[in-house]
């Protein structure tokens, strides 16, 4: 959300300004109270669990930790998670850009419906999403007999997991791009057309560079969700060890087997992934604010 990104940083600057002036400064106890509430909430609900994950993961030493990670089932879960993300993120990138472009640049019937549908995965519980796929593709579902005839397995197999992942990550890219494209308007694109650029040239040389940071931001969020998704994937996966388990599902299985050290070790992988995502996200936000500063 590059728009939100820059407005956040602007607000931050203004807050600093307000604070630096004697006349507009709040009483010290107000500041202290607000800070205490915010920081303790952060510590108890966010930082503490994160620390616990790593402490528990390493409770039985490095060796157990590493064993839990290189064990074949864990490795297969990592592979499947990466595969699901590698398929769903590019698809969502293409879909998100196309949808955002269509919504902001053309008038057509059903536009409002499309905008609403993009948000559907946010409003529907992931479990329901998974169930929908089961109803449609399972052996008793609508396409079940046809799929069975052609020997295609969707549910309790990799395609189902990929489908469920795509479903839950649909909104991210489009939601980032739509407000930005709306804010930027059409003038630069019109200028490019008048100068002789063809449709794809306009997109590649003018539209895309202007939204690149928002696009990257959307991709990062989409990727984080793809790798971390539990609900929808859990319904369609069937929990077949070494075959249809993604990382989050693998953590659950290990935990249910009272194999806490291994469960936390795998969980720590996901936590690390989250930290990397956060770091990249902050970097993108920082870069975006730099470019905004240069370009505005």
């Amino acid at each position: 959300m590059a728009g939100a990104v820059s407005s956040l940083s602007v607000q931050h600057d203004k807050a600093g300004l307000l604070e630096s002036r004697q006349a507009t400064r709040e009483a010290p106890w107000v500041k202290a109270a607000i800070l205490t509430v915010a920081l303790s909430f952060f510590a108890i609900f966010l930082l503490l669990p994160l620390v616990v994950v790593f402490v528990e993961a390493l409770a039985k030493g490095w060796e157990t930790y590493l064993t839990a990670l290189v064990e074949p089932d864990a490795l297969s879960a990592v592979k499947l998670t990466l595969l699901a993300a590698a398929i769903s993120v590019p698809l969502n990138l293409v879909f998100g850009v196309a949808a955002a472009w269509a919504i902001t640049r053309f008038d057509f019937r059903g536009k409002q419906l499309l905008i609403t549908l993009i948000d559907l995965p946010f409003s529907v519980s992931p479990v329901v999403a998974g169930l929908i796929y089961v109803l449609v593709f399972s052996s008793h579902g609508w396409f079940g007999p046809w799929l069975a005839e052609h020997d295609i397995k969707v549910i309790f197999a990799v395609p189902g997991i990929v489908l469920a992942t795509i479903f839950v990550t649909v909104p991210f890219v489009a939601r980032e791009l739509i407000p930005l494209l709306q804010a930027q308007g059409r003038e630069e694109e019109e200028a490019a057309v008048v100068l002789g650029a063809r449709g794809w040239q306009v997109f590649w040389y003018v539209t895309l560079p202007n939204v690149r940071w928002a696009l990257l931001y959307g991709v990062i969020l989409s990727n984080a969700r793809a790798m971390g998704e539990f609900g929808a994937v859990s319904v369609v996966s069937g929990h077949i060890r070494g075959e249809t388990n993604t990382l989050p599902l693998h953590v659950e299985i290990l935990y249910n087997e009272y194999n806490f050290a291994a469960a936390f070790a795998v969980a720590s992988l996901l936590a690390l992934l989250a930290l990397v995502t956060l770091a990249v996200k902050s970097w993108v936000e920082w870069r975006a604010s730099q470019t905004v500063a240069v370009e505005d």
Partner: peptide
């Protein structure tokens, strides 16, 4: 793009990047 017109927009519409 085939009309060979030059157009100067009110707010210039320079490519900001």
């Amino acid at each position: 793009r085939e009309r060979q017109v030059g157009f100067v927009f009110q707010h210039y519409a320079l490519f900001r990047h």
